[in-house]
């Protein structure tokens, strides 16, 4: 796809919350589809469910702090034809209710949409207990479950439409902080498709979530020395092998960046693909098998090299191999 056809946002556009895009998308699908119901475990405002709760009180269910029950109730609703969204922080949902996600939802093929908010290290001052860095790993292993990490506000809004159109369980994760805009209303989006946002020849940088913007920044800053291709992978499962392999056949070198443990997440998924289909040097930028800690979001992102500079260092390393 040409750069013009992508309709990307200008650099320096207004910061917006991915969770706000989710909340907006939810209101839009609710108006279109009466099957949509929303379940909250005491975090209604924080996850931007309050608009839905006020507009559709008959389709909104408050369950209190009980994520396991929430997953089960949603499975029952889905098996009765509803399209339930269950929303909490990713450390609880799917962190606390993984067994329910596995059996009541995935094995039973219940059409539940699981929303893991406040994911990643950037939840900041709350500390390690609340920093979901394992959620992609524990969802990616479940058969029949799609795993999606939208890039920004607009994409999150589109993701909500796409996952309601998809019949089957889906996990969607996003962080709390406002982020830079990469896409616009006109940018095409399809569930299951990775997108080459910047064409290059020497290194493929693969990213999801807010790190897509950082990857583009790194590519721009390094453009005199390295021709970097940036691929946005919003759908982590199923992985768009075709797009990734096409890029890596050209570049032969890969950096993966994500706000997650370096084990088991997007980096793991990419390595599983490449090690079997196209073995090439890979560097992973993420949290290196350790728990997080309290601190400002920006400080923590810097500490774990989840910045344009961190990505540039990984590109330099892999480019020299």
């Amino acid at each position: 796809m040409t750069k013009a056809a992508l309709h990307l946002a200008p650099v320096g556009a207004e910061l917006k919350g991915i969770r706000d895009g989710f909340g907006q998308g939810l209101l839009e699908v609710a108006a279109l589809d009466p099957r949509v119901v929303v379940l909250s475990a005491d975090l209604t405002e924080s996850i931007r469910l309050e608009g839905f709760a006020k507009t559709y009180p008959d389709r909104f269910i408050e369950l209190g702090v009980a994520e396991q029950n929430m997953a089960g109730v949603a499975a029952g609703l889905a098996l009765s034809g509803k399209v339930p969204f269950i929303a909490s922080y990713a450390v609880f949902n799917p962190g606390r209710n993984w067994d329910q996600l596995r059996v009541s939802i995935c094995y039973s093929q219940a059409n539940v949409k699981v929303i893991g908010a406040h994911a990643g290290i950037s939840v900041g001052p709350d500390g390690a207990t609340h920093q979901a860095l394992e959620d992609i790993a524990i969802t990616r292993v479940l058969p029949d479950l799609l795993v999606v990490a939208p890039t920004d506000y607009e994409e999150a809004r589109k993701v909500v439409h796409a996952i309601v159109a998809h019949e089957g369980p889906v996990y969607v994760r996003f962080g709390r902080e406002k982020t830079h805009q990469v896409t616009t209303e006109k940018t095409p989006f399809a569930l299951g498709k990775a997108q080459v946002l910047r064409a290059g020849k020497a290194v493929t940088v693969i990213a999801c979530g807010a790190q897509v913007y950082d990857a583009l920044q790194a590519a721009e800053k390094l453009k005199k020395n390295h021709s970097i291709e940036v691929v946005s992978v919003s759908t982590i499962k199923p992985l768009d092998a075709e797009t990734l392999l096409k890029s890596v056949r050209k570049t032969g070198r890969v950096v993966v960046v994500e706000e997650h443990q370096v084990t088991g997440g997007l980096g793991g998924a990419v390595c599983e693909l490449l090690s079997q289909k196209l073995p090439v040097p890979v560097r992973l930028v993420g949290v290196p098998d350790t728990f997080g800690e309290s601190g400002a979001a920006s400080e923590l992102l810097e500490k774990f090299h989840l910045t344009p500079q961190g990505i540039m260092a990984a590109v330099e390393e892999v480019a020299c191999l």
Binding site: Q68, N69, G72, V73, G76, L77, S80, K82, Q100
Partner: peptide
């Protein structure tokens, strides 16, 4: 322990 929650969901849907 998982069935009663699902039954609740089915009862609400009804």
């Amino acid at each position: 322990g998982q069935g009663l929650s699902q039954a609740c969901g089915m009862a609400i849907a009804a």
